[in-house]
């Protein structure tokens, strides 16, 4: 794959990552469980972006975090805050709308025989 294509794909994915992560945090998750959840849904994620992203979301008050020390290994759990839920729903709405529009656009192009 060419470098240009790679960088374009990365750019395309970048915006969707936040949405994907928010969607999985309706139940509390720790870092690695989140990675597994996302990977199970076929979403490849660069872990060096995911962990900092979680921190950023926490700083933006979209998610809450808490340390669970009850098990052998302490884990930091993240879950959507009320504000985060609200934002997530709006983002989701926006994404649905956008992807429908884009789909129509791309499909229309196809039918016109451009591609």
């Amino acid at each position: 794959m060419s470098n240009l294509l790679n960088s374009l794909i990365t750019e395309l994915r970048r915006g969707t990552l936040t949405l994907a992560v928010l969607s999985q945090l309706q139940t509390p998750q720790y870092g690695y469980s989140l990675v597994q959840l996302l990977e199970a849904s076929g979403i490849a994620i660069d872990q060096s972006t995911l962990y900092p992203l979680l921190r950023r979301l926490e700083k933006q008050e979209l998610v809450l975090s808490s340390w669970d020390t009850s098990e052998s290994r302490p884990r930091k759990y993240y879950v959507l805050s009320d504000y985060g839920k609200e934002i997530f729903l709006q983002l989701k709405e926006e994404w649905m709308k956008n992807s429908k529009e884009l789909y129509r656009l791309l499909k229309g192009e196809n039918e016109d025989g451009i591609n």
Partner: peptide
Amino acid sequence: LELRSTIADMLPDNYQEADVKKVLEKLG
């Protein structure tokens, strides 16, 4: 603390140095 716990999560139970390297490579 979080990194340590995450790395431990990613490693298999009886891990070797090769496993550690693989995990660290994933973290970048």
